[in-house]
Amino acid sequence: MPTVRPSGPGAVDVELDVNGIRTPLHVAPHTTLLDALREDVGLLGAKKVCDEGTCGACTLLVDGRAVYACMTLAVACAGRSVETVEGLARDGELHPVQEAFIAHDAFQCGFCTPGQIMSVVALLRATPSPSADEVMRAVSGNLCRCGAYPNIVEAALAAARKGKERP
């Protein structure tokens, strides 16, 4: 019996800016940004929960905008800036949103947390003083099965009040 091989074009070279670091990748064109980060770059913060754009656990920033990494192709991010939860803390100091998530107990199991945090970070950059309603809109695409929602909203508002969001 002849050997069967998966069809499709081969891997291509692409370079991303991941958390400020130039990151060359050699990936198949259909590779999602999520798979590229988790399997090729080794950044495991963004989680694969549904892999079809229905939960938000893989939310991260591309050119400052919150996107689902499972719905974004890695090759489409060539030359663009990708920010993940791993890139938020600076010099060992947590980002104000991260700090607020701990202070307000805005997670339980923590599996949705990187995505929730990235959604809030994107919101606060665009809207430094959001209303509770704006916070809810920003994280309405991020499911939390443990039900930490009230604390997530509190944490986001607290982080905004501290007003220390870095550009």
Binding site: L43, L44, G45, A46, K47, T84, V85, E86, L88, A89, L94, Q98, E99, F101, I102, A103, D105, F107, G110, F111, T113, P114, I117
Partner: peptide, 15 residues
Amino acid sequence: RRVEGAAKVTGRARY
């Protein structure tokens, strides 16, 4: 503060 808080908010927590 949860003792594993920092690990979970930084993406360092390993599942």
